Amino acid sequence: MKRINAAELCSLDTKKVLLLDIRSREEFELKGLEGSVNVPFDEISTGLSKLPKDKPVYVLCRTGDLSEEIAEILEDRGYEVCNIDGGYAAYVAFLAGTEL
């Protein structure tokens, strides 16, 4: 499975990839990344079937652990997928200049 870090996340073109945020709806509404789609982890069983397969899916969670699990499931289903190492926490740390 492909992986990227927070710096690479910042350079993604969300018109060419699907950025899947699996954090809770509340977290997403407070601090969602522009261009991302929210399918909370607890809704994954029904939400994954709605994801298009025509572009790579980059999966983001709070810390990178749950997103790795979901990325593996997507990969098994034939998606081109990438996990974002460190998740949203790494993204925030990168923006603050204190990379994890």
Results as ranks from 00 to 15, higher is better:
75 E>G: 11
25 R>G: 15
32 G>F: 08
20 L>A: 15
11 S>A: 15
39 V>A: 00
15 K>G: 15
88 Y>W: 10
38 N>I: 01
53 K>Q: 14
38 N>T: 05
73 I>C: 12
59 V>Q: 02
64 G>K: 00
72 E>T: 09
16 K>Q: 09
52 P>C: 06
56 P>C: 08
87 G>L: 00
62 R>H: 12
7 A>F: 11
37 V>I: 11
95 L>M: 07
49 S>N: 06
69 E>V: 12
75 E>P: 08
26 E>S: 12
69 E>G: 08
46 T>L: 12
98 T>S: 12
66 L>N: 15
93 A>Q: 09
25 R>V: 15
93 A>G: 08
23 R>A: 01
65 D>Q: 13
73 I>T: 15
44 I>N: 02
16 K>E: 13
70 I>Y: 08
60 L>S: 02
92 V>G: 02
49 S>P: 06
48 L>Y: 02
61 C>G: 11
81 V>K: 01
93 A>P: 05
99 E>A: 11
75 E>A: 11
56 P>M: 03
42 D>F: 09
53 K>A: 09
93 A>D: 07
32 G>V: 08
61 C>H: 05
43 E>W: 10
75 E>V: 12
44 I>S: 03
29 E>N: 10
51 L>C: 07
46 T>V: 11
14 T>G: 06
91 Y>A: 03
48 L>E: 00
61 C>L: 07
16 K>G: 10
38 N>E: 00
30 L>R: 15
60 L>C: 02
50 K>S: 12
22 I>F: 05
65 D>R: 13
79 Y>N: 04
76 D>E: 13
68 E>C: 14
60 L>Q: 01
51 L>V: 10
71 A>D: 07
95 L>H: 06
65 D>E: 12
32 G>L: 06
22 I>P: 03
25 R>E: 15
41 F>I: 12
81 V>Y: 00
38 N>A: 04
7 A>E: 15
49 S>F: 08
30 L>S: 14
39 V>R: 00
85 D>G: 07
77 R>C: 14
37 V>A: 08
27 E>F: 12
56 P>A: 07
23 R>W: 01
99 E>L: 05
39 V>S: 00
21 D>T: 05
97 G>F: 05
91 Y>L: 08
63 T>H: 07
52 P>E: 11
19 L>D: 02
79 Y>G: 04
61 C>A: 13
49 S>Y: 09
84 I>S: 02
43 E>I: 07
25 R>F: 14
9 L>C: 03
59 V>N: 02
76 D>H: 14
57 V>Q: 06
85 D>M: 11
12 L>F: 02
44 I>E: 04
12 L>C: 04
19 L>G: 01
54 D>F: 06
97 G>C: 05
55 K>H: 10
